[in-house]
Each structure stands twice: as structure tokens, then as C-alpha cells.
Design a protein around this nucleic acid. Structure first.
Length: 510
RNA sequence: GACCCCGUAGCUCAGAGGUAGAGCAUCUGACUUUUAAUCAGAGGGCCGCAGGUUCGAUCCCUGCCGGGGUCACCA
């Protein structure tokens, strides 16, 4: 056996493992037949009738151990929660000896009967104890105390963010609220699917590896296909493929899409994130706004049991129809105290200056509008708000506004100060789409590496003909933040992107 | 990419220019209804890494690595 252990506790556990094997204990058996999960027992136990719980089998990870000589109390944790178990040396001498070699973190199965202790805790009195998995690394020990009001006070919670994100499995074991976040996220996605499926829209899968990336303005991750010897891009959006499917005759398609954007990382951004996009034929953005209101309220009620979301500071955001709809330029005009619609680039520049909005003097008109909005308006949009009708330069895939050709029929939904959804009446005029792509190409030639790339096949599809279509994208991670009150997108992504850990010695063993 | 903050035991954190401390966890002993179990004792640290200043650095300085935050980019 190597002596090169990371620390004494790991070494001790490896030695215990050896000792267990020496005594004929199988440290990694194959199955264990459970009769109950912890929750079921706690929910169904009745003091006047323990009959139904006279013989139960539970399994879980040891989270607390209180040894008192010839009797021991321990808590095991399963997917539903924790339950206390009790074992006495004189009843199970051999297994009690084995227990001496067990630790917090080990996974065990307990068979026995349920009773209530003197201090009132429903507990499994062991008639048998089996080891199901020996844990070889110490777990952060989180101690809980219950005060007079029954509130749980957590002592020294495992809280180092780096460790929590890098070792999410530990985070999930010792921080029960983390597990709840991801259950909520999953339920939200299920509810979204159900909503779309009930309306007959088809869930589809489109390429993640794309020869031409498109559908958004962002820098891509580039990879290479060896056999075809060609560059491929991880998708930044699935929009152009979904529209091809509408051309193909599907009248409602959606995809839950992992997208990849080679951009910075912060509280609202992870390089790989989840979007939901949906396209419905013969509809426009007005219809979509109504749908989004209904969708959000329906899903939120299903997930949270009430039509309100929650911010990281605990503030509730009630969802009530109709969500206010404000036109982008009017919102900015209100914020700066003068109309901005007719302003030139130069005039917008000086407005930015007056309101201490930091911009490059060479910034385009669209860029200035975007900056004014995101600095002066967006942070105030806590309650759900549709911002509608964007300048055409900002939206190369959206259809021109039916009454103002300088605008497009587009809305973004803001919630909690974050952009949650982006949608348009989709541009289906191939001539206009080509002109917009060409404008993007000019921007790209001018050094804008986030400008869109011309996709000739997509134009071919539009020439075949796409019916009038409404399209919507929802940021799933951000919506999950508002479902769970998370402060950072990393708190709703199981394994957020981290730099590799600095070199450390891998675990040594015999 | 820029700036600010952080990095000390398995976990949560103190600390100080003279090479370290607490609580929990761990180990030994006591304890057959405990629950932050208790009581008595013990072990455990390249104080993120590398240079520099100094008689002496974990502490001061510089660089690097990792993380958090703000900004930029973006959703």
C-alpha cells in the first residue's frame, strides 16, 4: 500500500477499507432492496400504530454519527431527505463492530423497525446494517441545529464557491437547497415541454456542429472535423435550422438547445447555456406576446405553486396579465427626457455623454441605442415588461415593422432586470433577408467579428418560401434563476465552466 | 481583456515581521434514547506557487496560478 496519501484522513479510510475486507465485509456490493425512502417513513409514521413500519429497509449516506459506547445514532441521507437510525451493540454485535470502521460519507442499508425516540425523532431501530459503499474521502461536515421555532440553523456550511462548482457532487450531498434548485430547474423544463406538446408543437433536434453559424450575433467556438477536413462551429443558436423546418411544412417546432458563445463569463453568462426556441407558422409577434404571458404564468404556477418569481434578494416578482409593452425608443426617450427616434449618431452620442453612458465615439447608431437602453432602462425592468419594436439595424433576422420600415417587429421580455426572451415576426422575404445579410457582411468587413455570416442555403430555403412565422427564444438558465432566486447563472448550471484546477497530485491508493 | 477583493488543517474561519490557532471533522479512552450529543486526551499545515526585501517572510513587495465581484463583450 502506498503511503503517499493526500492527508491522514484519506489514509485512515483506505486502511479501514482493508480491515473491512479482511473481516469479510464486501465494501461495494451490487444491490440493496429498499422498502422505503426516508420521506415516506417520516410522513407515514404514527405513534399509535407503528404496525405498517415494523419492518422497513432504508438506504443512504451517513451524514452524522453519534457513538455512545454500546449504542450509536446516525443519520442517513437519501434522495428525499434524512432519517435517523439507531443501533445497539448487544443486538447486533458483529455489525456494531463493523460500524466502528464506518465514517460519515459511507453509504449503508438499514433494516429495522420505526419508533420515536425520547427526544421525539422518528428513527429506524436497526435489526441489520449493511455497508453499500465505503467512502474514501472526508466530506465537509455540515451541522444542523434546530431552534425553538423549528428553524434549521446550519453551522459552517460548505460554502467555498470554487469548491462547490468544481465538486458539485459534494455540493449536492451537503447542501440540500442546491439539490432543490436543480429539481426546480428540471420541473420548469418539463412544464415548458408539456405546454408546447399540449399545443401540438413538435420537439426537434438540429445540428450542434454547424458549418456556418448563425441566428445570433456572437463569436463562436471553432472545431475541426478530421474526415471532412473542415472547420465546424458549435452552434450559437438554432434559429436558422428551425426556420428551415417551418419552410419544410412543420407548423410549430421547438428545441431546447445548448448554445455556445465564445464570450465572457459573469453572473448572467456561461459560455455554454440553454435556450428554448419555438417557431409557429401563421403567427406574429403580437400573438407571441400573449402566448409568452400565458406560458410564463402557467409554468411558474406549476413549478412554484404561485404566479410569482423571486430575485436573489428574496423580492417576489408577481406575474399578472397583461405585461406592460413599451416601445424601445419611447422607453429610452422617457429615460433621457427627450425624443430619440429622429436623432442622428452625433446627437445620440451627446445624449450618451450627458447621461454618463460610456460609449466609443465611433459606435453605430444601433449600438448607441442599445447602450442607452441597457444602461438607463433595463436595470429598472424588474416586473415583466415587453420592450417592442427595435431599429432594423439591430435585428437582421426580424421582419420589418408593418407601419414603420425603419423598425422591426421584435420584442424582448425583461424580468428581474434581465433579458429573458427575444422574439420576432420572422423575416420571410428572401430579398430583404439577403440585403440584411449583406449589411452584416459589410459590418464584418469593417471589423465587427460578431456580425452575422451570410448563409446561402438559408436564403434558398426562404426562396422556397416560409409562411408568416413568429419565433421566440427563452433563456432557460436565467428563467431558472428567477424560479429559484439564484444570484448567479452558475447556481442553476450543474457544472459551470471553470478553468482546470492547478496541478495537484491525483489520489494515491494501494 | 481591465480593475478591486480573496487564497491559512478535510470544512468554516481567526491571527501576526520571530516559521501558526479555534470550532466542527479525524484518532484514543469513557458513555445502551443521542441529536451542533457530552466529557478527557491526541494527531493533523510547502499559511496557493515562484522570486525579492530582511538577520529572519505565512505576514511586506513583484510576478504567476486559481476563485469571487465590477466593467467590457454578450443572452
Amino acid at each position: 500500500m502506498s503511503t503517499d496519501f493526500e492527508n491522514d484522513q484519506i489514509q485512515r479510510r483506505y486502511e479501514e477499507l482493508e480491515e473491512l475486507i479482511k473481516r469479510g465485509v464486501e465494501p461495494y456490493p451490487y444491490t440493496f432492496d429498499r422498502t422505503h425512502q426516508s420521506r415516506q417513513i417520516l410522513d407515514t409514521f404514527r405513534d399509535d400504530d407503528a404496525g405498517g413500519l415494523a419492518d422497513v429497509a432504508v438506504a443512504g449516506r451517513i451524514m452524522a454519527l453519534r457513538r455512545m459506547g454500546k449504542a450509536t445514532f446516525f443519520h442517513i441521507q437519501d434522495a428525499q431527505g434524512k432519517i435517523q437510525c439507531y443501533i445497539k451493540a448487544d443486538e447486533l454485535p458483529q455489525q456494531y463492530e463493523m460500524l466502528r470502521l464506518l465514517d460519515i460519507g459511507d453509504i449503508v442499508g438499514v433494516r429495522g423497525f420505526v419508533f420515536r425516540t425520547r427526544t421525539g425523532e422518528v428513527t429506524v431501530h436497526a435489526r441489520a446494517l449493511v455497508l453499500l459503499c465505503k467512502s474514501l474521502r472526508p466530506l465537509p461536515v455540515v451541522k444542523e441545529e434546530r431552534d425553538e421555532q423549528g428553524n434549521i440553523i446550519v453551522h459552517d456550511a460548505f460554502s467555498d464557491k470554487e469548491q462547490r462548482y468544481r465538486r458539485r457532487y459534494i455540493d449536492l450531498i451537503v447542501n440540500p437547497h442546491v439539490r432543490q434548485v436543480f429539481i426546480t430547474r428540471s420541473r420548469m423544463i418539463t412544464a415548458l415541454r408539456r405546454y408546447f406538446d399540449e399545443r401540438g408543437w413538435l420537439e426537434v433536434e438540429t445540428p450542434v456542429l454547424q458549418p456556418i453559424y448563425g441566428g445570433a450575433s456572437a463569436r463562436p467556438f471553432v472545431t475541426h472535423h478530421n474526415a471532412l477536413d473542415m472547420p465546424l462551429y458549435l452552434r450559437i443558436a438554432d434559429e436558422l435550422y428551425l426556420k428551415r423546418l417551418i419552410v419544410g411544412g412543420f407548423e410549430g417546432v421547438y428545441e431546447i438547445s445548448k448554445n455556445f458563445r465564445n464570450e465572457g463569463i459573469d453572473r448572467m453568462h456561461n459560455p455554454e447555456f440553454t435556450a428554448l426556441e419555438i417557431y409557429v407558422a401563421y403567427r406574429d409577434y403580437h400573438w407571441l406576446m400573449d402566448m409568452v404571458e400565458d406560458l410564463l404564468i402557467t409554468v411558474t404556477e406549476q413549478v412554484r405553486g404561485q404566479a410569482s418569481l423571486v430575485q436573489a434578494d428574496g423580492t417576489q416578482i408577481p406575474l399578472r396579465k397583461p405585461f406592460p409593452r413599451i416601445r424601445l425608443l419611447e422607453a429610452i426617450s422617457q429615460a433621457v427626457g427627450e425624443p430619440v427616434a429622429e436623432k442622428t449618431q452625433q446627437e445620440l452620442l451627446s445624449i450618451c455623454k450627458r447621461h454618463s453612458v460610456d460609449v466609443a465615439p465611433s459606435a453605430s447608431r444601433a449600438k448607441l441605442i442599445d447602450e442607452l437602453f441597457s444602461t438607463l432602462v433595463q436595470p429598472r425592468l424588474i416586473e415583466p415588461t415587453f420592450v417592442v419594436d427595435y431599429p432594423v439595424e439591430m435585428s437582421p433576422l426580424a421582419k420589418r415593422h408593418r407601419t414603420d420600415p425603419t423598425l422591426v417587429e421584435r420584442f424582448e421580455l425583461y424580468l428581474g432586470g434581465m433579458e429573458i426572451a427575444n422574439a420576432f415576426s420572422e423575416l420571410n422575404d428572401p430579398r430583404d433577408q439577403r440585403a440584411r445579410f449583406e449589411e452584416q457582411a459589410r459590418l464584418r468587413a469593417g471589423g465587427d467579428d460578431e456580425a452575422m455570416v451570410l448563409d446561402e442555403d438559408f436564403l434558398t430555403a426562404l426562396e422556397i418560401g416560409m409562411p408568416p412565422t413568429a419565433g421566440l427564444g427563452i433563456g432557460i438558465d436565467r428563467l431558472a434563476m428567477l424560479m429559484t432566486g439564484a444570484a448567479s447563472i452558475r447556481d442553476v448550471i450543474l457544472f459551470p465552466l471553470m478553468r482546470p484546477e492547478p496541478t495537484h497530485t491525483p489520489s494515491q491508493h494501494c
